[in-house]
């Protein structure tokens, strides 16, 4: 199997600190050196060394957190998908989280340009007692004709299995020929973001604090959040700017970290 970019990593807990016990990357994918924004758990930046994704590109990522490992992964910048003539660009991600591990996986926006076709498939398998914070965002890129949506389609498919039960199946197909600005679809917005949080300790108080804290965005974004079949939540946002969604995610992360994890906020300092 020939990949345009491939990245595999395994994190484990050694003497109270999380380390990468195995990592491998090739092609257009690279992994940064660890950054210690928190003392015992490293943050790694996922780097794409090319300018963006084009037709026929195929990317593969596997993240494995062993028991108790705590790790943050974040993309270094937006994923730009350019015109794909024949085959779409495709990215597959497989995540396996063992008991007691916690992965924070923050993805910058996927920006789909004119005539882009993009498939993103994510499968996450979690053992009981593992935790996850994941964000993603989709938007359209600038086009010469100034139209809002000029990509062909974006297809995202995510499955989360927790303790051998499917708890989230998230299948999204954004295609401008469906009149994306219509009611029920993007409703006049251009950016769509999601935040998924799964943690045994998520309680009513933290959930309601989040609901209250997000009221201030009522005029800039359309936000919904709801509980999962297990302790966890999914938040959806429609807005017109990446920055608004990032601010919403940052507030959520701060509240969830302080109320659920009893940890301070982290500033990722990317730009």
């Amino acid at each position: 199997m020939n990949w345009t970019g491939q990245l595999h990593l395994t994190a484990s807990l050694k003497n109270g600190k999380t380390i990468l016990c195995d990592s491998y990357y090739e092609g257009a994918f690279k992994l940064s050196r660890p950054v210690f924004l928190e003392e015992d758990s490293p943050t790694y930046f996922l780097i794409h060394v090319g300018g963006g994704y084009v037709g026929g590109d195929r990317y593969n990522q596997c993240f494995h957190l062993e028991e108790g490992a705590v790790l943050t992964l974040t993309t270094q910048s937006a994923t730009k998908v350019y015109k794909t003539t024949a085959l779409p660009a495709k990215q597959q991600t497989t995540i396996f989280l063992e008991k007691g591990s916690f992965l924070t996986y923050l993805q910058d926006p996927v920006i789909a340009y004119e005539q882009a076709k993009y498939i993103q498939e994510t499968t996450i398998e979690m053992e009981a007692g593992s935790s996850l914070l994941l964000t993603d965002m989709y938007t359209s890129g600038w086009s010469a004709t100034q139209q809002s949506f000029t990509y062909d389609w974006i297809h995202s498919d995510m499955t989360v299995i927790y303790d051998r039960r499917k708890i989230v199946i998230d299948r999204l197909l954004l295609q401008p020929k469906d009149q994306l600005d219509s009611i029920l679809l993007l409703e006049g917005y251009t950016h769509f973001g999601s935040l998924l949080f799964i943690h045994e300790k998520l309680n009513d108080a933290a959930f309601h604090e989040l609901v209250e804290a997000l009221h201030i965005f009522e005029n800039e974004a359309r936000i919904g959040l709801s509980r999962l079949p297990v302790a966890g939540l999914l938040l959806r946002v429609l807005a017109n700017q990446t920055q608004i969604i990032e601010r919403i995610f940052a507030i959520c992360e701060t509240i969830l970290r302080s109320e659920v994890l009893q940890k301070e906020a982290v500033f990722y300092r990317k730009y």
Binding site: R171, L172, R236
Partner: peptide
């Protein structure tokens, strides 16, 4: 069969907001 369960962002958000 892979299209099973596909949904729409605006509708999902409206369903979630109903709780509030």
């Amino acid at each position: 069969e892979s299209a099973l369960g596909r949904t729409q962002p605006g509708l999902e958000i409206a369903q979630m907001r109903h709780e509030q």
